[in-house]
Write a protein that binds this DNA or RNA. Sequence first.
DNA 1: CATTCGACTGGGACCGGTCTCAGGTTGTCA
DNA 2: TGACAACCTGAGACCGGTCCCAGTCGAATG
Lengths: 335, 335
Amino acid sequence: MSDVSAKRKPTIRQIAAQAGVSRSTVSRVINGGHWVSPDARQAVEEAILATGYTANHHARSLATGRAGSLAFLLTEPQQLLFDDPTFALLLRGAAEALAQRAMTLVLLVAGTPAERESVAQFLSAGHVDGVMLISSHESDPLLDQLIEVGIPTVCCGVPLGHERELSTISVDEVASARTMAAHLVAQGHRRIGMIAGPDDTPGGRYRLVGFRDELGELFDETLVEQGDYSYESGLAAMTRMLEHDVDAVFAASDRMAAGAIAAARRAGRRVPEDIAIAGFDDSGLAATHEPPITTMRQPWDQISAQMVAVLLEVIAGASPRSVILDTELVVRASA
Amino acid sequence: MSDVSAKRKPTIRQIAAQAGVSRSTVSRVINGGHWVSPDARQAVEEAILATGYTANHHARSLATGRAGSLAFLLTEPQQLLFDDPTFALLLRGAAEALAQRAMTLVLLVAGTPAERESVAQFLSAGHVDGVMLISSHESDPLLDQLIEVGIPTVCCGVPLGHERELSTISVDEVASARTMAAHLVAQGHRRIGMIAGPDDTPGGRYRLVGFRDELGELFDETLVEQGDYSYESGLAAMTRMLEHDVDAVFAASDRMAAGAIAAARRAGRRVPEDIAIAGFDDSGLAATHEPPITTMRQPWDQISAQMVAVLLEVIAGASPRSVILDTELVVRASA
DNA sequence: CATTCGACTGGGACCGGTCTCAGGTTGTCA
DNA sequence: TGACAACCTGAGACCGGTCCCAGTCGAATG
């Protein structure tokens, strides 16, 4: 009489009844099947197959205290990541890595102060098991909040000021910048400028360090401009740089390199004939830009995979740790 | 004795105790505060403020049956959306719209068959309240699954073959294509080709329809190539198209337009002097490309906002409905 | 004065899992 | 033969909320 409307999703009790065992046994089967007799296990598995049973995530989370999800937290102000192609690569990689582990990815955006506040509250409420933090700035209060809340966190790029407290997946910024600088020198350039990123980001600070180290005596302080990784800032920086004598420029992001190329063109310079311009990231933009941009490739797939792996370790109780990955020089037409 | 370790998050019972009321009353205050005396409400609010209490989402979901989250479902095969800048815009807009409603966004990727299977299971398990489906192909089995499961869904772009069953947020593809075609004609072009998208996507099919309608006698079947919205396909299509006499090309995506520009350049043609090339989407790429790409702007912010709004309506019980938004011609240098 | 109504409150069942624990078999070893 | 371990099982408490319902109280109504 009441079974007629077999609409509702089956619960663990129904599976238990159908398999002729207790809820506990069904639960054991679901979670690895240890200490379950072959007979019982088979009965349960058949019942699950027959009904298409799926455990209710919310109930499970309530009971275990584990959320079964990780947050992908973006902190850049609106327009910057808005059209940053790199974060999409990270996002996708992370989503796939999580799906393989039957976990879900929750996207969190903490741009405005109001958003940051509600995100902090959300995280401290324990709605997710851990956080993948994308692109942080030094002295970002969110970093302190994350540490205070004590939620497992892994950063993409060294979190300046909190290097020891949080896990990090990053590339060797200094070495990468040296590689690119060496490439430009090897191409015969001598007046080499750099469009650095913000000094409060690891990519802004350490790529400049590597660049300076490698250039040595060739380094010229007047040929350093700063941008914010965006196309517009690259364009503006390059416009200023062109007032000096310069024959090659290393931009700390592909987008800034694209902006720099545009600025050079507007000034009547040809790229790379009159001036070589290189980028950083190897975001999709680099290969398809006109001309294709010489850049340092960041291993996005490895970064996202490692972020998930390390974060899960930390959630499981491990201490924070850092992973440094290799970059690769990709020579295209622009430099 | 046991209160010493005041580490754990406060529960609704503790708030109730602290405020001197029952759990029920606290629950009422949290959910709108109807039928609660001013005194009780104030006591509860003070207790919440003092403890920093936040409701446990999982417990709430378990009790209410509502998940409090929406899925953002990507279905394109790997490399296509991989570097598609447009989906990032949608994603961000959706995330913000949801955050304002205290809901969360879960990112789901259904590229491989295995992923599609687990995604379908995930959705039918009711782990989210609704689905925002991005870029679907006709006869995609996922569409049937969504409909069968009966989960509230809103599509970005008309879901070919299921126009009536699912809610849709889209732009007027035909009118948009006509606008662009008219622009090219007005520029004096007569031999106008089109690089269309896949015929099983609304943008592939209807942009071609509008293009053909507008051109009328100028339309030449031999000047139509098909791509898959990617840079590479645009490049290949343009390479073929250059075998014919053509003085303008309308590509159904900015990425294909970029590819087409590259192909034209390789063939020694100048853009736009020798051949005009226009795109579609106004993804970030269009403005910063060299030359900047003339394109039809899709109102990404409106699209994402409407997706969330309509989806919530449907979840609340409304019938599926469709919203058609306006596009805007953005004239830049390429055409 | 009895009745009814509306505002307000708390008790307890319930959502669907997990997990601890006590207990029952069976087999092995002293 | 008894002790003990290893394997297997189910009962019931518990996670932290929501919500139905019964019940109280004061004011308005008849």
